[in-house]
């Protein structure tokens, strides 16, 4: 088969481009350590979240020095807890599920973004910095009230976290 020399050049450049893209993504994974939402958690019964010790009471919990876990339930049409309150400069692992239909969980303008699928638990770990207020949106259509579904992520100072934590626990 006859292929023009210029076309061979372009073919080679195209393959270089593809390898460059794959290389960038791989660099992101091993350099800055970006990890994907995966199947790390077992499936759960979405109709019986009240029997699950994580999601019966959605909350933020300290699990290590400067390490926190947030158990978040998405539902038509909101997130629980809201706001999610975490202390500054900490590592936060979010476990997110849905108790009804498929939702999205996106901290607007950041890289924290995942699907919330009933029966599945999405796990994402992020490092938060300075105190700041972020908005959370549901970015998957979930029913007629979808556009009203929002939440908040509050990164607060150590002191505020201590006092809020004390006030929140029922």
């Amino acid at each position: 088969m006859h292929i023009h020399a210029y076309e061979k050049i372009w073919l080679a450049l195209s393959i270089v481009l593809i390898l460059f893209l794959l290389g960038s993504v791989t660099y992101g994974a091993v350099g800055p350590g970006v990890a994907m939402v995966a199947d790390s958690e077992a499936q759960i019964d979405a109709n019986a979240l009240d029997e699950d010790d994580r999601f019966a009471e959605p909350r933020v919990e300290q699990v290590g020095e400067n390490e926190y876990e947030a158990y978040v339930v998405a539902y038509q049409f909101g997130f629980d807890p809201s706001p999610i309150v975490v202390p500054e400069d900490s590592t936060v692992t979010l476990q997110i599920t849905s108790r009804d239909v498929i939702h999205g969980f996106e901290v607007a303008g950041t890289n924290a973004n995942t699907m919330a699928v009933p029966g599945e638990v999405a796990e994402v770990t992020v490092e938060v910095g300075e105190p700041q207020e972020y908005g959370i949106v549901c970015n998957e259509y979930c029913g007629a009230g979808h556009h009203g579904m929002e939440g908040k992520l509050h990164v607060v100072t150590e002191e505020e976290f201590e006092s809020e934590d004390g006030g929140d626990s029922e």
Partner: peptide, 8 residues
């Protein structure tokens, strides 16, 4: 890519 329940 952002679905839980599918391995990386």
């Amino acid at each position: 890519y952002l679905d839980p329940g599918i391995a990386e």
